[in-house]
Protein backbone atom coordinates (compact mmCIF):
# COMPACT_ATOMS: atom_id res chain seq x y z
CA UNK A 1 0.00 0.00 0.00
CA UNK A 2 1.50 3.33 -1.02
CA UNK A 3 2.31 6.07 1.43
CA UNK A 4 0.11 8.55 -0.42
CA UNK A 5 -2.95 6.31 -0.10
CA UNK A 6 -2.21 5.77 3.60
CA UNK A 7 -2.05 9.53 4.13
CA UNK A 8 -5.23 10.12 2.14
CA UNK A 9 -7.02 7.39 4.05
CA UNK A 10 -5.88 8.87 7.39
CA UNK A 11 -7.30 12.25 6.39
CA UNK A 12 -10.53 10.64 5.18
CA UNK A 13 -10.95 8.86 8.51
CA UNK A 14 -10.35 12.07 10.42
CA UNK A 15 -12.61 14.14 8.20
CA UNK A 16 -15.90 13.68 10.16
CA UNK A 17 -14.22 14.73 13.38
CA UNK A 18 -12.47 17.64 11.69
CA UNK A 19 -15.82 18.83 10.31
CA UNK A 20 -17.39 18.70 13.77
CA UNK A 21 -14.40 20.56 15.25
CA UNK A 22 -14.56 23.25 12.58
CA UNK A 23 -18.31 23.62 13.18
CA UNK A 24 -18.23 23.82 16.98
CA UNK A 25 -14.80 25.36 17.62
CA UNK A 26 -13.31 26.79 14.45
CA UNK A 27 -16.28 28.74 13.13
CA UNK A 28 -17.32 30.23 16.53
CA UNK A 29 -13.70 31.22 17.14
CA UNK A 30 -13.39 32.99 13.79
CA UNK A 31 -16.82 34.59 14.35
CA UNK A 32 -15.74 35.77 17.83
CA UNK A 33 -12.57 37.32 16.38
CA UNK A 34 -14.73 39.15 13.81
CA UNK A 35 -17.23 40.18 16.48
CA UNK A 36 -14.49 41.59 18.71
CA UNK A 37 -13.75 44.31 16.14
CA UNK A 38 -17.37 45.55 16.10
CA UNK A 39 -19.71 47.37 18.47
CA UNK A 40 -22.38 44.66 18.00
CA UNK A 41 -25.02 44.19 20.70
CA UNK A 42 -26.24 40.75 21.73
CA UNK A 43 -29.52 41.32 19.91
CA UNK A 44 -30.28 43.57 17.01
CA UNK A 45 -27.92 44.73 14.26
CA UNK A 46 -24.60 43.15 13.33
CA UNK A 47 -22.77 46.26 14.56
CA UNK A 48 -20.18 48.53 12.97
CA UNK A 49 -16.47 47.92 12.57
CA UNK A 50 -14.60 49.77 15.33
CA UNK A 51 -11.07 48.46 14.85
CA UNK A 52 -9.19 47.67 18.06
CA UNK A 53 -11.31 50.02 20.14
CA UNK A 54 -12.84 47.18 22.18
CA UNK A 55 -9.37 45.87 23.08
CA UNK A 56 -7.89 49.22 24.07
CA UNK A 57 -10.98 50.12 26.12
CA UNK A 58 -11.01 46.78 27.86
CA UNK A 59 -7.27 46.66 28.61
CA UNK A 60 -7.26 50.22 29.95
CA UNK A 61 -10.39 49.82 32.10
CA UNK A 62 -9.99 49.56 35.84
CA UNK A 63 -12.65 46.83 35.80
CA UNK A 64 -10.39 44.59 33.77
CA UNK A 65 -7.26 45.14 35.86
CA UNK A 66 -9.19 44.64 39.13
CA UNK A 67 -10.74 41.47 37.78
CA UNK A 68 -7.38 40.20 36.55
CA UNK A 69 -5.95 40.67 40.06
CA UNK A 70 -8.95 38.84 41.61
CA UNK A 71 -8.62 35.98 39.10
CA UNK A 72 -4.88 35.67 39.64
CA UNK A 73 -5.33 35.72 43.41
CA UNK A 74 -8.06 33.05 43.19
CA UNK A 75 -5.96 30.85 40.87
CA UNK A 76 -2.69 31.14 42.82
CA UNK A 77 -4.25 30.65 46.25
CA UNK A 78 -6.57 27.79 45.37
CA UNK A 79 -3.98 25.90 43.29
CA UNK A 80 -1.27 26.34 45.96
CA UNK A 81 -3.57 25.09 48.72
CA UNK A 82 -4.80 22.21 46.56
CA UNK A 83 -1.22 21.16 45.81
CA UNK A 84 -0.19 21.17 49.46
CA UNK A 85 -3.32 19.42 50.77
CA UNK A 86 -3.34 17.02 47.80
CA UNK A 87 0.26 15.92 48.38
CA UNK A 88 -0.27 15.60 52.14
CA UNK A 89 -3.40 13.51 51.58
CA UNK A 90 -1.53 11.33 49.09
CA UNK A 91 1.35 10.80 51.55
CA UNK A 92 -1.17 9.82 54.21
CA UNK A 93 -3.13 7.49 51.95
CA UNK A 94 0.11 5.87 50.81
CA UNK A 95 0.75 4.57 54.34
CA UNK A 96 -0.44 1.11 55.25
CA UNK A 97 -3.41 1.08 57.60
CA UNK A 98 -6.79 -0.58 57.90
CA UNK A 99 -9.53 1.05 55.86
CA UNK A 100 -7.06 2.66 53.45
CA UNK A 101 -8.93 1.54 50.32
CA UNK A 102 -12.22 2.86 51.71
CA UNK A 103 -10.63 6.19 52.56
CA UNK A 104 -9.06 6.44 49.11
CA UNK A 105 -12.46 5.92 47.52
CA UNK A 106 -14.07 8.41 49.90
CA UNK A 107 -11.51 11.06 49.05
CA UNK A 108 -12.58 11.12 45.40
CA UNK A 109 -16.14 12.04 46.37
CA UNK A 110 -15.80 15.88 46.36
CA UNK A 111 -14.13 15.76 42.97
CA UNK A 112 -16.82 13.44 41.59
CA UNK A 113 -19.62 15.79 42.68
CA UNK A 114 -20.94 18.19 40.01
CA UNK A 115 -19.67 21.72 40.64
CA UNK A 116 -23.21 23.06 41.04
CA UNK A 117 -23.91 20.53 43.81
CA UNK A 118 -20.61 21.41 45.47
CA UNK A 119 -21.32 25.13 45.24
CA UNK A 120 -24.85 24.73 46.64
CA UNK A 121 -23.49 22.62 49.48
CA UNK A 122 -20.97 25.29 50.41
CA UNK A 123 -23.61 28.02 50.18
CA UNK A 124 -25.51 26.09 52.82
CA UNK A 125 -22.41 25.78 54.97
CA UNK A 126 -21.72 29.52 54.66
CA UNK A 127 -25.38 30.52 55.14
CA UNK A 128 -25.56 33.61 57.38
CA UNK A 129 -28.69 32.40 59.22
CA UNK A 130 -28.33 28.65 59.68
CA UNK A 131 -24.94 27.75 58.13
CA UNK A 132 -22.83 25.04 59.71
CA UNK A 133 -19.71 27.21 59.68
CA UNK A 134 -21.38 29.95 61.70
CA UNK A 135 -22.78 27.34 64.07
CA UNK A 136 -19.40 25.69 64.62
CA UNK A 137 -17.46 28.93 65.04
CA UNK A 138 -20.04 30.36 67.46
CA UNK A 139 -20.03 27.24 69.57
CA UNK A 140 -16.25 27.29 69.65
CA UNK A 141 -16.51 30.98 70.73
CA UNK A 142 -14.34 32.04 67.80
CA UNK A 143 -17.00 34.52 66.61
CA UNK A 144 -19.67 36.36 68.60
CA UNK A 145 -22.39 36.54 65.98
CA UNK A 146 -23.32 34.84 62.71
CA UNK A 147 -21.64 36.40 59.70
CA UNK A 148 -22.46 36.51 56.02
CA UNK A 149 -19.25 34.93 54.70
CA UNK A 150 -20.33 35.24 51.09
CA UNK A 151 -21.93 38.64 51.62
CA UNK A 152 -18.87 40.49 52.88
CA UNK A 153 -16.23 41.62 50.34
CA UNK A 154 -13.49 40.81 52.86
CA UNK A 155 -14.37 37.11 53.20
CA UNK A 156 -16.24 36.14 50.04
CA UNK A 157 -13.19 35.33 47.90
CA UNK A 158 -11.52 33.34 50.69
CA UNK A 159 -14.77 31.40 51.18
CA UNK A 160 -14.87 30.62 47.46
CA UNK A 161 -11.24 29.51 47.47
CA UNK A 162 -11.97 27.06 50.31
CA UNK A 163 -14.95 25.62 48.43
CA UNK A 164 -12.88 25.27 45.25
CA UNK A 165 -10.01 23.61 47.13
CA UNK A 166 -12.37 21.12 48.75
CA UNK A 167 -13.64 20.13 45.34
CA UNK A 168 -10.33 19.95 43.51
CA UNK A 169 -7.68 18.73 45.96
CA UNK A 170 -8.65 15.06 45.30
CA UNK A 171 -7.42 15.37 41.71
CA UNK A 172 -3.99 16.47 42.92
CA UNK A 173 -4.05 13.77 45.61
CA UNK A 174 -4.91 11.08 43.05
CA UNK A 175 -2.09 12.12 40.72
CA UNK A 176 0.36 12.36 43.64
CA UNK A 177 -0.76 8.99 45.01
CA UNK A 178 -0.14 7.33 41.65
CA UNK A 179 3.31 8.93 41.53
CA UNK A 180 4.09 7.79 45.08
CA UNK A 181 3.45 4.20 44.12
CA UNK A 182 6.22 4.56 41.55
CA UNK A 183 8.86 5.43 44.16
CA UNK A 184 11.07 2.32 44.31
CA UNK A 185 10.98 0.58 47.68
CA UNK A 186 14.75 0.08 47.56
CA UNK A 187 15.41 3.82 47.43
CA UNK A 188 13.12 4.43 50.40
CA UNK A 189 14.88 1.61 52.27
CA UNK A 190 18.31 3.02 51.32
CA UNK A 191 17.31 6.44 52.67
CA UNK A 192 16.21 4.84 55.95
CA UNK A 193 19.56 3.08 56.31
CA UNK A 194 21.34 6.32 55.34
CA UNK A 195 19.57 8.06 58.19
CA UNK A 196 17.27 10.41 56.26
CA UNK A 197 14.43 11.79 58.40
CA UNK A 198 10.90 12.36 57.04
CA UNK A 199 11.73 15.78 55.54
CA UNK A 200 14.99 14.69 53.94
CA UNK A 201 13.24 11.59 52.65
CA UNK A 202 10.49 13.69 51.10
CA UNK A 203 12.95 16.11 49.56
CA UNK A 204 15.56 13.72 48.21
CA UNK A 205 13.63 10.49 47.65
CA UNK A 206 9.96 11.25 47.06
CA UNK A 207 9.95 14.70 45.45
CA UNK A 208 12.02 13.73 42.39
CA UNK A 209 9.38 11.12 41.57
CA UNK A 210 6.49 13.50 42.36
CA UNK A 211 7.79 16.54 40.46
CA UNK A 212 6.78 15.48 36.93
CA UNK A 213 3.23 14.31 37.70
CA UNK A 214 2.69 17.26 40.06
CA UNK A 215 3.71 19.64 37.31
CA UNK A 216 0.97 18.18 35.12
CA UNK A 217 -1.53 18.64 37.95
CA UNK A 218 -0.31 22.20 38.43
CA UNK A 219 -0.79 22.99 34.72
CA UNK A 220 -4.28 21.50 34.60
CA UNK A 221 -5.46 23.14 37.80
CA UNK A 222 -3.99 26.58 37.07
CA UNK A 223 -5.62 26.75 33.66
CA UNK A 224 -8.94 25.60 35.11
CA UNK A 225 -8.69 28.00 38.04
CA UNK A 226 -7.91 30.86 35.67
CA UNK A 227 -11.06 30.11 33.66
CA UNK A 228 -13.24 29.52 36.73
CA UNK A 229 -16.91 30.40 36.26
CA UNK A 230 -19.45 27.88 37.53
CA UNK A 231 -18.63 27.68 41.25
CA UNK A 232 -18.47 31.49 41.52
CA UNK A 233 -21.61 32.05 39.48
CA UNK A 234 -23.61 29.69 41.69
CA UNK A 235 -22.22 31.00 44.98
CA UNK A 236 -21.78 34.79 44.56
CA UNK A 237 -22.35 35.81 40.91
CA UNK A 238 -19.14 37.79 41.22
CA UNK A 239 -20.34 39.83 44.20
CA UNK A 240 -20.46 41.36 46.70
CA UNK A 241 -19.28 44.62 45.15
CA UNK A 242 -17.49 42.64 42.42
CA UNK A 243 -15.06 41.27 45.04
CA UNK A 244 -15.27 37.75 43.56
CA UNK A 245 -15.60 38.73 39.93
CA UNK A 246 -13.17 36.71 37.80
CA UNK A 247 -12.37 37.15 34.11
CA UNK A 248 -14.93 34.56 32.97
CA UNK A 249 -17.64 36.28 35.02
CA UNK A 250 -16.63 39.63 33.50
CA UNK A 251 -16.88 38.13 29.99
CA UNK A 252 -20.35 36.81 30.82
CA UNK A 253 -21.50 40.11 32.28
CA UNK A 254 -20.14 42.10 29.37
CA UNK A 255 -21.63 39.86 26.69
CA UNK A 256 -24.89 38.74 28.29
CA UNK A 257 -25.79 41.03 31.24
CA UNK A 258 -24.82 44.25 29.44
CA UNK A 259 -25.46 42.66 26.04
CA UNK A 260 -22.24 44.15 24.57
CA UNK A 261 -21.33 41.21 22.31
CA UNK A 262 -18.43 43.04 20.62
CA UNK A 263 -16.52 44.03 23.73
CA UNK A 264 -17.48 40.71 25.39
CA UNK A 265 -15.85 38.88 22.47
CA UNK A 266 -12.69 40.97 22.74
CA UNK A 267 -12.48 40.19 26.45
CA UNK A 268 -13.03 36.46 25.84
CA UNK A 269 -10.16 36.49 23.36
CA UNK A 270 -7.90 38.27 25.84
CA UNK A 271 -8.67 35.56 28.43
CA UNK A 272 -8.00 32.86 25.82
CA UNK A 273 -4.66 34.47 25.01
CA UNK A 274 -3.67 34.64 28.68
CA UNK A 275 -4.56 30.99 29.24
CA UNK A 276 -2.68 29.98 26.09
CA UNK A 277 0.44 31.78 27.29
CA UNK A 278 0.10 30.03 30.66
CA UNK A 279 -0.35 26.64 28.98
CA UNK A 280 2.68 27.13 26.73
CA UNK A 281 4.87 28.24 29.64
CA UNK A 282 3.81 25.23 31.65
CA UNK A 283 4.27 22.87 28.71
CA UNK A 284 7.87 24.05 28.46
CA UNK A 285 8.28 23.56 32.21
CA UNK A 286 6.82 20.03 32.07
CA UNK A 287 9.19 19.15 29.26
CA UNK A 288 12.12 20.42 31.32
CA UNK A 289 11.00 18.51 34.45
CA UNK A 290 10.49 15.30 32.48
CA UNK A 291 13.92 15.70 30.92
CA UNK A 292 15.71 16.06 34.23
CA UNK A 293 13.90 13.24 36.06
CA UNK A 294 15.95 10.32 34.76
Amino acid sequence: MSGTWMTTRAWLLMLPLLMVMVAVIGWPLVDTVGLSFTDAKLVGTAGNFVGIDNYTKMLSSSNFSRTLVTTTWFAVASVAIEMVIGVLAALLLNQEFRGRTFLRALMILPWALPTVVNATLWRLIYNPEYGALNGALTQLHLIDAYRSWLGEPGTALAALIIADCWKNFPLVALIALAALQAVPRDITAASLVDGAGPFARFRFVILPYLAGPLMVALVLRTIEAFKVFDIIWVMTRGGPANSTRTLSILVYQEAFSFQRAGSGASLALIVTLLVTVLALAYAALVKKTAGSAT
Binding site: F204, L207, P208, A293
Partner: peptide, 20 residues
Protein backbone atom coordinates in the same frame (compact mmCIF):
# COMPACT_ATOMS: atom_id res chain seq x y z
CA UNK B 1 16.02 2.25 63.72
CA UNK B 2 18.04 1.13 60.63
CA UNK B 3 20.13 4.32 60.74
CA UNK B 4 21.29 3.52 64.27
CA UNK B 5 22.26 -0.11 63.64
CA UNK B 6 25.77 0.61 62.38
CA UNK B 7 25.09 -1.14 59.09
CA UNK B 8 25.23 -0.11 55.43
CA UNK B 9 23.32 -1.78 52.66
CA UNK B 10 23.78 -2.23 48.92
CA UNK B 11 20.67 -3.04 46.92
CA UNK B 12 20.06 -5.05 43.77
CA UNK B 13 18.55 -2.03 42.02
CA UNK B 14 21.44 0.21 43.26
CA UNK B 15 18.83 2.48 44.91
CA UNK B 16 20.68 5.68 44.05
CA UNK B 17 18.98 9.05 44.53
CA UNK B 18 18.25 10.09 40.94
CA UNK B 19 18.43 13.85 41.42
CA UNK B 20 21.70 13.91 43.38
Amino acid sequence: HPKNRDIAMVFQSYALYPNL
